[in-house]
């Protein structure tokens, strides 16, 4: 088997706040192959964004390992890490805040090329224009400032800036959830086109399963710092096994009002990551008919066949 582009093993990220430990990410493992898209789905507080930020080493991890292209990021010197960062880039949720309001758009896009000296200074301008055109903007936009653009256009600028350093992996953290509905599809389509043309891999983080299934080959569903179900996007969404995934799938908007009433309404709320339940993290809200004492005391492992795995004492993948 070939080495995956990104290999995350037992990633743990704990924060300390006011004397308590917040277990934001509590043992997450995932792989992404070159050119592949993994959708990481979960609600706020599930730890999905923290996974993205620790994978990029924007935050240090508590334990576990992140290997990119076979290299353990934890063992790299800070200079080597900066060089590796060229190959893994970030697309933000808030395209406005991700752009420095004082810098011209062309300057922002050129920044990565200047840092890594991948393009001769005289050729930078042409590259910037080519990138702007690649993401559907005009050459003349290079001299404008971020506030002159709509949300969708700013997201295109953010994508162009990330592409400027020729990455192999894009971590997209809720890339369309701040955009108007009629504009979301444009940005999703752009990401799909770029993936095809540039053979990009995506770690696509989102709370919206409907959006994720549109772009992801595989999905991993997170709940309270752990992955509760993973597999091919089509299988997980078409035949979810974990009760939490089933509730999420049932919440996907359905254009047929008759079918929408099959929605599963979960009781209660996600517990605080400062006080996770001792057993299965989903146990307090679980509606599985076989739920028992074991669920309350023992955390189920993520088990299954190949890439299809479920963390539930009463669901097996076979």
């Amino acid at each position: 088997m070939t080495v995956p582009l990104l290999e995350v093993r037992d990633l743990v990220k704990h924060y300390r706040a006011h004397g308590t430990v917040i277990r934001a990410v509590d043992g997450v493992s995932l792989d992404i192959a070159a050119g592949e898209t993994l959708g990481l789905v979960g609600e706020s507080g599930s730890g999905k964004s923290t996974v993205g930020r620790t994978v990029l080493r924007l935050e240090p991890l508590t334990s576990g390992s992140v290997r990119f292209d076979g290299n353990d990021l934890g063992s790299l010197s800070s200079a080597a890490l900066r060089a590796t960062r060229r190959r893994m880039q970030l697309v933000f949720q808030d395209p406005g805040g991700a752009l420095n309001p004082r810098r011209r758009v062309g300057d922002a896009i050129a920044e990565g090329m200047r840092i890594h000296r991948t393009v001769a200074p005289g050729a930078i301008r042409d590259r910037v224009i080519a990138l702007l055109e690649e993401v559907g903007l005009a050459a003349s936009d290079a001299d404008k400032r971020p506030h002159q653009f709509s949300g969708g256009q700013r997201q295109r600028i953010g994508i162009a800036r990330a592409l400027a350093v020729e990455p192999a992996l894009l971590v997209c953290d809720e890339p369309v959830s701040a955009l108007d509905v009629s504009v979301r599809a444009q940005v999703l389509n752009l990401l799909l086109e770029l993936r095809e043309r540039r053979a990009l891999a995506y770690l696509f983080i989102a709370h919206d399963l409907a959006v994720v299934q549109q772009v992801a080959h595989r999905v991993a569903v997170m709940y309270l710092g752990t992955i509760v179900e993973t597999g091919q996007a089509r299988t997980v969404i078409g035949a979810p096994r974990h009760p939490y995934t089933r509730a999420l799938v049932s919440a996907i908007p359905h254009p047929d009002p008759a079918r929408a009433s099959e929605r599963i309404v979960l009781a209660g709320e996600q517990p605080s990551p400062a006080k996770p339940p001792p057993g299965c993290p989903f146990e307090p809200r679980c509606f599985h008919p076989a739920k028992d004492a074991r669920c309350r005391h023992e955390r189920p492992a993520l088990e299954g066949l190949g890439e299809r795995r479920v963390a539930c004492h009463h669901e097996r993948v076979d």
């Binding site: 924007l58 900066r82 960062r85 970030l90 933000f92 920044e111 840092i115 890594h116």
Partner: peptide, 25 residues
Amino acid sequence: AGYVTAARALGATPGRVLVREILPG
């Protein structure tokens, strides 16, 4: 700020982030 994170993600050194992104603000 998002753009400071973006600069770090691009691989900018701490000094460069300081001078080019934070100082102007």
